[in-house]
């Protein structure tokens, strides 16, 4: 176990979506209502909140299961203290991602790579070129076997005209890129 970091809760509360952390009174409503916890008990939103409050920074940010959240907002809905748990989990993910970029945490869940590719497609075209981003992701994460598995659906979709081979770019891409730059630069 790593050393406790009493500043961790403030680090989380400074992020958009993490502000309400200290409102939690540990009722477990988030975990009880969570469909993922039901399948995989290692994903436990109440435990993440508790660990964050006591300063278990390394344990939380290095936790692979953080990436299991499906963002169904059940925890958000059922929280009597309005902790906005779904958004809190996203804050923990983003801090974990920052640690990963510094090489201090390894994230195995491929969702993190998919999100990067998705963001890049939106930044470049203004819209996501869904079929290309998905195909590339399957190739990168599951290789030929993954693509072969996807083939029957891919073929059906292609013949039904559901796959666009080319990206559709919007005309004011500059506005979208500006939004990306300003937000990623912390609003400056």
């Amino acid at each position: 176990m790593g050393e406790l970091d009493p500043g961790f809760k403030y680090e989380v509360m400074r992020e958009p979506g993490g502000e309400q952390l200290k409102m939690c009174f540990s009722c477990t409503g988030c975990t009880v209502s969570c469909p993922v916890s039901e399948i995989e008990p290692m994903y436990n939103p109440r435990r993440y909140i508790h660990q964050t409050l006591v300063g278990m920074r390394d344990e939380v940010l290095g936790d692979e299961y953080l990436w299991r959240c499906v963002q169904c907002h059940s925890c958000y809905e059922y929280c009597p203290q309005d902790v906005k748990v779904t958004e809190l989990i996203s804050v923990l993910r983003s801090l974990s991602e920052r640690e990963a970029k510094r090489g201090r945490v390894r994230i195995k869940n491929p969702l993190y790579m998919f999100e990067d590719a998705f963001a890049e497609s939106v930044r470049r075209h203004g819209r996501v070129h869904e079929s290309m981003v998905i195909a590339k992701h399957i190739w990168k994460t599951r290789g030929l076997k993954g693509l072969m598995e996807f083939m029957p659906l891919g073929k059906a979709m292609f013949f039904k005209g559901k796959i666009s081979l080319f990206a559709k770019s919007i005309s004011k891409r500059d506005q979208v890129q500006k939004i990306f730059d300003v937000v990623r630069g912390g609003g400056h």
């Binding site: 958009p16 998919f114 819209r127 919007i170 506005q175 939004i179 300003v182």
Partner: peptide, 24 residues
């Protein structure tokens, strides 16, 4: 006219970005 992607559920690690893209 000329709408953009709202950010879907894939930009979870940057809430402000989703809000700004959607607001456009």
């Amino acid at each position: 006219e000329d709408w953009n992607c709202c950010g879907a559920l894939e930009l979870t690690t940057n809430k402000a970005l989703v809000i700004a893209l959607s607001a456009r």
